[in-house]
Design a protein around this nucleic acid. Sequence first.
RNA 1: GCGCCCGUAGCUCAGUCGGAUAGAGCAUCGGAUUCCUAAUCCGGAGGCCACAGGUUCGAAUCCUGUCGGGCGCACCA
Length: 584
Amino acid sequence: MTDKPSQTLYAAFAARIDAVLAALEKEGHLPPETSRANVSVEPPRDPSHGDLATNAAMVLAKAAKTNPRALAEKIIEHLARDPLIESADIAGPGFINLRLARQNWITELRAIAQLGDDYGKSTIGDGKRVNVEYVSANPTGPMHMGHCRGAVVGDALAALLEFAGHEVTREYYVNDAGGQVDTLARSAHLRYREVLGEDIGDIPEGLYPGAYLVPVGQAAAEEFGARFQAEPEEEWLPIFRAFAVERMMDLIKSDLALLGIRHDVFSSEAALQAAQKPEAAEAWLREHDLVYDGVLEAPKGKAPPEDWEAVELPLFRSTKFGDDQDRPIKKSDGKWTYFGADLAYHMQKAEKADALIDIWGADHSGTVKRIKAAVAALSEGQGKPIPFDVKLVQMVQLLRGGEPVKMSKRSGNFVTIADMVEEVGKDVVRFSMLTRKPEAQMDFDFAKVIEQSKDNPVFYVQYAHARISSILRKAADQGVAPSADALDTLGEHELDVIKQAAQFPREVEAAARAREAHRIAFYLYDLAAAFHALWNMGNDDPGKRFIVGQDPAVSSARLFLASQIGQVIRNGLALLGVEAVEEL
RNA sequence: GCGCCCGUAGCUCAGUCGGAUAGAGCAUCGGAUUCCUAAUCCGGAGGCCACAGGUUCGAAUCCUGUCGGGCGCACCA
């Protein structure tokens, strides 16, 4: 989405290598205007290969009419003159492996200290406005497990994009205009009558049976008295709808708060319709022959629906944009379909954004094509093509000790977010949701994440941070403070951990580009592992501890290192919305 | 029947723009604790990257097909 150059340490060396290639071109070793697009400069998987590797010689050999190793020789001649590069070697089929001079890492360590909470921030977003819509659960009840993953993934992604230099709007679309909120209103009215003393018996089929509506009935009774008890539905339906939706949204917001999630904008579908946005969209689409009146084909499902009949409806030409079928924007009763309103809604979002991202549950995968088609049609047609990404979040299977947790929506018996957070804690819920790529299905086993808490990655990362906090407390007691004065005393093993920490800005950029917040979780795990390994060296050899009794200079340098590792862990956890604890 | 997602070690999963000998945790086997938090660390064993073709210097990664699992296929939301 943006070509703004990166400013990480690694990017700096990529630029140096690019400069070398430009020089070679000038010297005639490379033909003019050779594309260097496929040249990569990145840390090799195997650290024994050095700090950085480039495939430049392999990619460009053909253009240079030579073999990769010969070209690599030329490249290395230049690189060897760079004082920040300690060594450059040719390996394998023609890779060039670089070992960076020690001072690069020391400089990076100081940078962490200087930048603090800002370390890892990137400008690749270039201030572009990105609207991330997530959760958008129907306002008909408390949030349950099915909403959880999308909520966490969306929230972490929003934080990540913000950190990477985007201007992010966190948005929630409130579906307060469809049939479900009418059902909600009727269900609430029934509870209202119950509170007023009526015997309502069993909740009829088709209404929401959940006990969470009892307080709504209570509140309605307090608000309206008996005014609507025996009135016909037309009298109270709109009133109860608005009343109940507002309370459901309060409920949802408090559930979200338990997860540490707060949206910037709540957009109401009813308000959108009242403002006649769908009409405007339809008019424009009709003008451009993208909406026409036509008849839908019969559904192709396994069993043909008995009550299906051909009806003429206004259809959007989504097939023109790769969809399998044109899609109705209005129902036969004249009301907008969900899609009809949704396309207008996306236009509304697009007015104030440079890019849109929707986080949806996988059960909506079938509607991705049509909404992408709509956004493409409207935004391109109006001269402002807008990047639009729909991220599908797969289902989470809830388990307890390997057994599926039984849930039934009909009886209103489902595991809520509030239950979950109460049982295992916000940090565990959030981190767990981010330790799997969102598009893969996952299991969430209550027994596993709490009973075997030591096997849980979130504790592993938090433990590293807690250890760092602990060592700094201990040092303070002994009158030793972190200091950058003697960083020259840091050894190879310490340098290895700095190298790991130095990857953070790069990970942030890669994750932001891919729009995958889970990468940060995995990165933090690796960083924590590197720290734990360093720590344990002190168990075998007291001279390798952070606090070395006889040597305040060495101690202060190592404490400085520890302190900066803690800083990076904090910065990463902040993106995930997980607390960096001082003690475990 | 069609569309989307997934398939990597016994289990749960990573795998950067297509790069070098495919990685981690759990489980398993063997070690480390008079010591800054052992909720940790070190080592061993464990692989047809579902299968078959293709693209190219190079494929777990991209393309095609097959098989397997999930989700969806109303004018619902």
